[in-house]
Design a protein around this nucleic acid. Structure first.
Lengths: 152, 152
DNA sequence: ATAGATGCAAACACTTTGCATGGAC
DNA sequence: GTCCATGCAAAGTGTTTGCATCTAT
């Protein structure tokens, strides 16, 4: 499934919203950037492009993109939320390097299956989940303290 | 393993810190409350007890308790962090009801094992993880929208 | 005695909101 | 023309920090 501005327009229509220039700019930049981008990054990037968008508008647009299921929002505890394209991409979870901030995606269907089992066991209806593993990535091994895994 | 103020004192000593009255009050209240408590809850509870502790001190004490491995910190996306006793309790992860805010703990060693496999695969050294499933608890089923699981 | 702790208020960082103006439909 | 969107600045929220005072050791 191709995810582009056309898809965005379509989703906006479904909600009776307008496709404005600022919204096109935010969505476009988000799509072209890929990766895990924060609101401030977007504001800065758009400003540098000579097409500044007000911070309120950026936040409001991100809320729409998230609410439409086009983008996922993640909080890696860095004090700000980051966004990544969701539609048209397979689901995955993340490893986060506490040393360099690298975000590594992983897919493990067996974990997903066990999750279903857990929710069933608790008569719980899952809507979404967040599974993050924090530690040291391959390149930051040397900075890791000599300790075993602690859970949180 | 019994976790009490004595353990706290011991951990403080190890770091060259003092066991002061405010710290005893915060740790004591946290231990007696159980559950998942936020900084503001503590401040309010202590104030009501007639033993108020400054907000800065509460936050600073929570940081120590967390850093000493006595308490875990969780963010369920409610805008504030919550704390729960960690030492002397088995590790677990959480289901969070987006309707009533209920926090349900679950243990699933098979998921933990698969996690290890994932980190090994990526040459990643895990320090801790956060696995949360959001949705509707048994009692809030009726409020759940008719939709399949969405991931985030 | 002295290094560390307290508590107030001010500072912070991220995000949201009120409101007058502007633009999509 | 109507209703929604924008953008500024101000407000909000949870948390952290500077600093003079106090206290456990």
């Amino acid at each position: 499934m191709k995810v582009d501005l056309g898809t965005f327009q379509e989703r906006l229509r479904q909600r009776g919203l307008k496709l404005t220039k600022p919204r096109r700019l935010v969505a476009g930049k988000l799509l072209s950037t890929g990766g895990h981008v924060a609101a401030d990054d977007l504001i800065e990037l758009l400003r540098r492009d000579g097409t500044p968008v007000g911070r309120a508008t950026v936040y409001r647009t991100l809320a729409i993109l998230r609410g439409s299921g086009l983008f996922d929002e993640h909080d890696f505890g860095s004090g700000h939320k980051v966004y990544e394209r969701a539609l048209g991409r397979p689901h995955h979870d993340h490893l986060f390097c506490v040393s360099c901030g690298a975000v590594i995606e992983f897919r493990e269907p067996r974990i997903e299956r066990l999750q279903d089992e857990v929710t069933r066991r608790h008569h719980f209806t899952a809507m979404y989940h967040s599974h993050k593993i924090f530690g040291y990535c391959r390149r930051c091994q040397s900075k890791a303290p000599q300790r075993v895994e602690r859970h949180a």
